[in-house]
Computed example of a mutant assay.
Amino acid sequence: MATASIQLHRLASDGDLARAWARSMGVEFPRYTSWEELRDELSRTQGVPELKITDQGGFLLYRAVSSNVSVIVADAEDEERGYRVGNGDVWSLDLWAPFRAS
């Protein structure tokens, strides 16, 4: 497996999915998670790697190259929370395997 993605945006529109995830994985996520809240939590954690920010056209990609983790955040001023995540909410978390040249 090269990458894995936790699509948190799906929790906004599917409460049953969120409950099933919590039961099976033992991890609960709120329906919406704002990047601001996540960034505040990270600021209280030692050793958090530097984040490279890239505009992905309607999304911002915060990538921690040293830990192989990315956070994708909705970046559309007109998006409000509802059936979907809103502007500034975490869309997904991505984990990837480092590339190894053969």
Rank of each mutant, 00 (worst) to 15 (best):
Ala4Gly: 10
Ser5Met: 06
Ile6Arg: 01
His9Ser: 14
Ala12Met: 01
Asp16Ile: 04
Leu17Met: 11
Arg19Leu: 13
Arg19Ala: 15
Ala20Lys: 12
Ala22Val: 03
Ser24Met: 09
Val27Glu: 12
Phe29Ser: 02
Tyr32Asp: 00
Tyr32Lys: 02
Glu36Met: 08
Glu37Gly: 05
Leu42Trp: 15
Gly47Asn: 10
Val48His: 01
Val48Thr: 11
Glu50Phe: 08
Glu50Leu: 12
Thr54Met: 08
Asp55Glu: 14
Gln56His: 10
Phe59Leu: 12
Arg63Phe: 04
Val65Ile: 07
Val65Ala: 12
Ser66Ile: 02
Ser66Lys: 15
Ser67Arg: 14
Ser67Ala: 15
Ser67Cys: 08
Val69Asn: 01
Ser70His: 04
Ser70Val: 04
Val71Leu: 13
Ala74Arg: 13
Ala74Ile: 07
Asp75Phe: 06
Ala76Phe: 04
Glu77Cys: 03
Glu77Lys: 10
Glu79Gly: 00
Arg81Leu: 03
Tyr83Pro: 03
Gly86His: 06
Gly88Leu: 11
Asp89Pro: 00
Trp91Met: 09
Ser92Gln: 14
Ser92Trp: 04
Leu93Cys: 06
Leu93Asn: 03
Leu93Pro: 00
Leu93Lys: 03
Leu95Asp: 01
Trp96Val: 09
Ala97Trp: 06
Pro98Glu: 14
Pro98Thr: 13
Phe99Asp: 09
